[in-house]
Design a protein around this nucleic acid. Structure first.
Lengths: 206, 206
DNA sequence: CTTTTTACAATACATTTGTATTAAAAAAGG
DNA sequence: CCTTTTTTAATACAAATGTATTGTAAAAAG
């Protein structure tokens, strides 16, 4: 038989080809033929790794989530001051480069696609809300948050802010580029951690 | 000839059928046949009002925008205290009922669909950012905003918050229902208008 | 070396899709 | 009443798509 192939690796390559196709041509362009061509495979070859299109799409979606959570887990494992860790984790939730942009793009596409599937493959949640709740707990336990705030509402606001910014960065990348995204988020987090005087960052007394 | 038909009215009916189909079956289900069936027409009949599918979709998208902007314009025309007008306008940007939810749903679907079209029908912008800028100007001119805030950043934040909440209300309607949406937005706007002490609404001294 | 198993390619097939064509029915205009 | 024009229906057709089948080559297993 021909050179033994690492199935899992091939599946990941195909999933990445899927991401590229969706990013460039939308969900409408994510046909098995387009994906096979992007991956440099024939239809028959593709079918050896995914027997149905929805299985391929579901796998590709799952892989996006794994990649993102792995990156975040890595940041959380770094040895940083709590404040830096808190901020950097949140910044990671927003697309700062082309790669993250594609991830978010395909995540949206997958979500919209699987939402209306009869045999639902299991409506995947991105887990960001749960993660932000834990992150806010972490911030509170490390004294980053003033006691006066309504933590639950602030978590909801932060969640909406992050996803809203992500969405806008995707829809209007020329207006909302990386540096501006960072400015907006830092501004919000500074206000959040400042309690009274939300006007600016806390440690600014020059 | 058969009973003269108001073409514009028919086109609106068809567009509304399109919304329903997209809401229930996603963009994948928005075939000309499904839409014709939902509208109670034959393929040939549909084709008398829209000669191509993309023309139908583009019209349906335009109609969504017109409906939403009309509703907002109506609120702006009401005789309300500036503070109420400011808040109610922003609350209108978020889906509080089934109808608004469908509008947002199809707007997202259309946006994703037309994004990857060779002969782009004209990437429609929802105009929310521009509207919010004007609304913030209005708020400032009516003394609702403290001078200490960074108006541009706060506009960007508000924009992201609104769209993020809308997205989440769509994705997790059970968790983020109407009352909760309102609580979160009011909380944010209160903090925004409060300047120092962002902890709660301003006029609360009992 | 022989056999068997694996990766891949080519092709086939039934459905669905957008669009086009043709025709009929129905009422407005004269 | 008769012609004309508009609405609608029925059918056609080519292209695209998901999936299945068949075949082939290559290397692992013996």
């Amino acid at each position: 038989m021909p050179k033994q192939i690492d199935h899992e690796k091939r599946r990941e390559q195909i999933a990445q080809a899927t991401w590229r196709v969706i990013s460039e041509r939308g969900m409408e362009g994510a046909t098995v033929r387009n994906i096979a061509a992007e991956a440099g495979l024939s239809l028959g070859a593709l079918r050896h790794y995914f027997s149905t299109q929805d299985e391929l799409l579901a796998y590709s979606m799952k892989l996006v989530k794994e990649r993102v959570t792995a990156r975040i887990r890595e940041i959380l494992s770094l040895d940083l001051p709590p404040r830096e860790k808190f901020i950097r984790t949140i910044l990671e939730l927003v697309p700062m480069n082309r790669e993250n942009m594609v991830e978010m793009e395909v995540w949206f596409a997958f979500t919209a696609y699987f939402r209306h599937k009869p045999g639902r493959f299991d409506m995947q949640d991105d887990g960001v809300y749960l993660g932000l709740q834990k992150l806010m707990d972490y911030a509170e336990q490390n004294g980053l948050l003033p006691a006066s705030i309504d933590k639950e509402l602030e978590t909801e606001k932060l969640y909406a802010l992050v996803d809203g910014l992500a969405l806008h960065a995707y829809m209007q990348p020329q207006r909302l580029d990386g540096p501006r995204l960072e400015r907006v988020l830092i501004h919000h987090l500074s206000g959040l951690m400042a309690a009274e005087k939300q006007s600016d960052a806390p440690d600014r007394r020059s």
